[in-house]
């Protein structure tokens, strides 16, 4: 199966582990990812705060660059995913606005036909297109004994439906169960990580991060498994600062779901970007997965 691939800025550096593991896992599952040539930033939540038309035009450039051979575009980053799907939907639902976006694209010699590209999140591709049997078939090292808390964040499950429940999504729960992991059913799995608030108001952001870490810990999770670079950065990168701020002692590794897939599929952890996380995952993996080094 062939998909256009939009990694997004985070996956270049900060979330390189996500990018590596997405590519490794895709390869193994027969998902052919073709990176959009010369893609640009999706503008995150920031561009929409300044100029809606420009924000959409910037995003639509990427849609316009998707090669005509495929109409499926995969974005692993939640913010990129939402921006891409939202722009397409705005152009479809509001044709006048769509025309304006195309006027902008025309200035760069491009054109996008609204609705042509279906934007998908990597999780949906694996769960919906590849499916349980094919995933289970590839598992060589079941994650038995590992208590994982799936963390969905916001922008994939809301506000545009990805055929999961926007309040209590289940797709990653299912996927992690296929890998043999013990899945923690905890209530804040689709609550907010604070998003860009770490850059604006630390006390506010830290409180949101604390709520998630606290709840995952209350439900005795060994680690949190996420699907968005921003969520990973906030929960992992800021974890020690949150501990300092509240006097807590959280020590929860925050991993990408594709990294866990890779481990279960027996892929070399190095290739999956293990070691790039700040709260290291190795000790708990070794302890829980039968003492064998991963």
């Amino acid at each position: 199966m062939k998909y256009a691939y939009y990694p997004g800025c985070s996956l270049e550096r900060n979330a390189a582990a996500y990018d590596h593991s997405v590519r490794e896992v895709a390869d193994l599952l027969g998902i052919r990812l073709q990176e959009i040539d010369d893609w640009n930033c999706c503008g995150a939540t920031e561009y929409f705060s300044r100029n809606e038309l420009a924000a959409c035009a910037v995003i639509a450039r990427n849609l316009a660059l998707v090669e005509p051979q495929t109409d499926q575009l995969v974005a692993p980053c939640a913010a990129c995913y939402l921006n891409l799907i939202k722009t397409d939907k705005l152009m479809v639902d509001h044709p006048e606005f769509g025309k304006e976006v195309n006027q902008c694209l025309a200035a760069g010699g491009l054109k996008y036909e609204p609705g042509r590209v279906t934007v998908r999140h990597m999780l949906d591709v694996i769960v919906d297109d590849i499916g349980e049997t094919a995933v289970r078939d590839k598992v060589v090292r079941p994650l038995a004994g590992l208590r994982v808390a799936p963390y969905y964040g916001c922008q994939v499950v809301r506000p545009i439906s990805n055929n999961d429940n926007p309040e209590y999504p289940m797709k990653m729960d299912h996927l992690l169960k296929w890998l043999g992991a013990e899945v923690v059913d905890y209530p804040v799995k689709a609550h907010c990580c604070g998003g860009h608030m770490t850059q604006i108001s630390e006390p506010q952001a830290f409180e949101l991060i604390r709520r998630l870490l606290q709840n995952a810990q209350d439900y005795v999770a060994d680690m949190i498994v996420c699907m968005c670079p921003m969520c990973q950065l906030n929960l992992d990168g800021y974890q020690s600062r949150v501990n300092g701020f509240f006097g807590t002692e959280f020590k929860l590794p925050i991993m990408y779901f594709t990294q866990m897939l890779g481990i279960a599929f027996g892929i070399d952890p190095q290739k999956l970007g293990f070691g790039k996380e700040i709260v290291t995952a190795m000790p708990v993996l070794e302890a829980k997965l039968g003492g064998q080094p991963v």
Partner: peptide
């Protein structure tokens, strides 16, 4: 330059 042309048009 292409991106900038698009952004300028949008602005």
């Amino acid at each position: 330059e292409q991106l900038q042309a698009i952004i300028n048009k949008a602005k």
